[in-house]
Amino acid sequence: MRELKILAVVVFFSLLVYVLVEPFAHSQMHKHVEGHNFVYTGEADIVQASKEKKETKKKFWSDVKKIASIKGDVKAGEAVFANCVACHNGANVNMGGVIPPKLDHAGSIYDKNYLIALIKDPAMASNVDHKYEDTSTHPMGSVKFTVNSDKDIADVVAYMLVHKAGEATPKEAYEEACVRCHAMRYDKLTQLGETPGFKYEKDALAHKIKVLEEQEKVKTYMGKLPPDLSMIIRARSENFLETFIENPQSQLPGTSMPRVGLSKEGYEKVKAYLTAIGDPSKPERERLGPWVIGFFIIFSILAYLWKKEKWRGHY
């Protein structure tokens, strides 16, 4: 039938334009980075490292592997963990650039290898050692004086994997892993966390000043204020978010953003939160869609019958 042939031509050219302008053009514009499924073995770090650093990195990550094979003692780990609480205490006080994150769900939202690496050498684990080559030391650099033997590291990680491994809500995961740098203004989160409600304007303003002061410190430490992530779920592709969070250097070489070491589970939590805030209509869309489309299918059937009736006798 002629009409169907014409329709086929129209559909063909429309789809051709779509495929070339959307998926194809975007694949040409953005480099594709392979993810590692949130398992941290330092593989990408070693590949990316400069010549003189390659060996150091190789050694570092093989040490991490070695520690990971030691069976940690949870009980002993509890005692070591007391050192951590000195800073990771939820007091919301900036220390050397950022507020030390709470560790309430560290055992579930972070990867085991990453936790070991981080305690051994925070800058290397986060793959931002290039930032600390000259003078400044990593804010968590002092960990090497408190938790310094392989056994201690294995013990404290074993402790966290048992006692700090409750199920985090998506928002908790974000607050523990991201909020010290990235505000989320569409959910009233700042670098200081949840913004409380204030009865008096002067209290609200006083809080705002505290936020600005905190942002100033983060900015000094990071080079620029890390972006608010309210809309990031729609501003970046899935592949970008995944690989960037897993290893920021892979997408933006030289960036001051550290790797935060989310596990697969932790990433899913954070993504769920970013989606809930940045794309809140998703459940509503999925609920309403079939009804509207169903309506137009019935509409088309009725319209076809009407058309047939009106055109009867014309040919």
Partner: peptide, 19 residues
């Protein structure tokens, strides 16, 4: 009557894209 039928088909595509 034919326009309305074509429009119906078009709106199926349209709302598929919207949702």
């Amino acid at each position: 009557s034919k326009d309305v039928f074509v429009m119906g088909i078009y709106f199926i595509l349209f709302f598929y894209l919207v949702f």
